[in-house]
């Protein structure tokens, strides 16, 4: 049995998202296994980012249920929660397809903002912070240490005090991941983390993701077009096309699924019919 059926961290059930008359996602169900790297793939416009936006609360789904099972056995119905609570309470963090860093703030500041909620608590909702209570100083120091750790991990410690907007593209991608990790997530959702990276950077990204999964115990859900990344690191692949799931399984299974090949490469119409007959559509 695979981890996504017997120990899921996220279960998506009958998720449907309509924009006016357009059905972006239709009755989609899949699980994300705890401790897995799960890849959500599909051609452009298949609805992958919409799934992300539903999971992280930026869109309210039209129908369906999204359940986050935290390691402390707490359950969260994400479709009912406002976006910021999904990050704060359900511990789901995300990155964006078009990088959203705080460009005018330094790398360190970016990572400090990610630790807003625990720091806010430690500062006694600002009042203790104004008077400089000791517990806040301690918490702040820990936060800086965590930021330092992640900056070191992504190889940008040297540039801790530089503005984020000054970083080259690949570094910005990694910083965004580090920032998401600083919020202490149990599930990390990455929207095309390898987009625009060169092969070397892409390799660094793979090792960073594997490190996050292995050492931090964070499950990862990622959208990716780069098949070298997907096939190399993911344990579980879900394929979307036109807002519907067409395949779900291990990379090996998905790679050989004729429907996936059809969706990606396109096939003559007769062959689609043939394949559809085979799979019983």
């Amino acid at each position: 049995m695979s981890s996504w059926t017997n120990n899921p961290i996220l279960t998506i059930e009958h998720l449907t998202m309509r924009f006016g008359g357009l059905v972006a996602i239709g009755d989609l169900s899949f699980n994300v296994g705890r401790g897995d790297i799960t890849a959500l793939i599909g051609p452009n416009g298949a609805g992958k980012t919409t799934v992300f936006n539903c999971v992280t609360g930026f869109y309210k789904p039209t129908e369906g249920r999204i359940v986050m099972h935290r390691s402390n056995k707490e359950k969260f119905l994400l479709e009912r929660m406002p976006d910021f609570k999904i990050s704060a309470k359900a511990k789901v963090a995300r990155t964006f397809q078009n990088i959203r860093l705080f460009g005018g703030m330094t790398l360190l500041e970016n990572l400090m903002v990610a630790q807003h909620n625990p720091l806010m608590l430690a500062s006694g909702f600002t009042i203790g912070g104004i008077f400089g209570v000791a517990s806040f100083h301690k918490a702040e120091k820990e936060a800086v240490d965590r930021a330092r750790f992640w900056l070191d991990r992504i190889g940008l410690l040297e540039r801790a005090d530089a503005p984020a907007a000054d970083l080259p593209y690949g570094d910005q991608r990694r910083l965004e991941i580090a920032r998401a990790m600083c919020s202490g997530p149990e599930l990390l959702c990455l929207d095309e983390p390898a987009a625009g990276l060169n092969p070397k950077e892409s390799g660094e990204l793979n090792s960073l993701l594997q490190y996050i999964r292995a050492e931090q115990g964070t499950s990862i859900l990622l959208i990716e077009h780069d098949m070298s990344v997907v096939m190399e690191i993911s344990d579980h692949v879900v394929v979307l096309d036109y807002g519907e799931k067409i395949s779900d399984g291990t990379p090996e299974e998905v790679k050989n699924d004729p429907k996936v090949i059809a969706a990606y490469l396109g096939v003559p119409d007769e062959e689609v019919d043939l394949v559809e007959q085979e799979v019983g559509l």
């Binding site: 992280t56 999904i86 963090a93 959203r100 500041e109 909620n117 500062s123 909702f125 104004i130 919020s183």
Partner: peptide, 30 residues
């Protein structure tokens, strides 16, 4: 107070809000 707040989480959240509100929400900031 302002100078002090800038160095506290709330002040940093203000500035982060100015930079990118959506990113703030994704980081759990109300």
């Amino acid at each position: 107070v302002t100078m002090r707040l800038r160095k506290l989480p709330v002040g940093r959240a203000w500035e982060a809000l100015r930079e990118d509100e959506i990113a703030c929400r994704s980081l759990g900031i109300n």
